[in-house]
């Protein structure tokens, strides 16, 4: 995955590190799309997923509580019905039949937080939400 990433990923400046409170999420506007970004400072990690919860199609994941599973996998719980999703690969932890979230790579340079959009994602934009 990382190989293709470096080849086709476009990084866009999402926000400053101080824009997202510690151990919380925020929503980033990218073109007509919404991306949830999480400042998991407790782990020293940043994550990004689609903001849309696939369960009831709500733009809400950025407002969800983050945490970890027993296996230490970082996760986010949708505020609406508490379906939880892996922040690493986007799969739904509480319901195996639920759709997987799209996840995005995040990099921090100085105070700047970038989200990586792959060529595939850009192509996908044509379909919109």
């Amino acid at each position: 995955m990382s190989k293709t990433l470096t080849e086709t990923t476009t990084w866009f400046l999402a926000c400053k590190t101080s824009d997202v409170a510690e151990n919380l999420g925020a929503c980033v506007k990218y073109k007509d799309d919404q991306i949830a970004i999480f400042n998991f400072s407790r782990r020293g990690e940043w994550y990004a997923t689609q903001n849309l919860c696939p369960h009831r199609m709500q733009m809400a994941l950025s407002r969800g509580m983050i945490g970890s599973t027993l296996d230490n996998e970082p996760k986010v719980a949708c505020p609406f019905h508490k379906k939880t999703f892996s922040l690493v690969d986007g799969h739904c932890i509480t319901d195996e039949h639920e759709c997987r979230l799209k996840t995005y790579p995040v990099k921090v340079e100085g105070d700047d937080v970038f989200i990586g959009i792959s060529q595939d994602d850009i192509n996908m934009d044509a379909y919109g939400f």
């Binding site: 998991f40 407790r42 782990r43 969800g64 509580m65 983050i66 945490g67 970890s68 599973t69 027993l70 230490n72 970082p74 996760k75 719980a77 508490k82 939880t84």
Partner: peptide, 10 residues
């Protein structure tokens, strides 16, 4: 232990 979850946090 761990990073918490939507049950213990609230």
């Amino acid at each position: 232990k761990g990073d918490g979850c939507e049950v213990c946090k609230p």
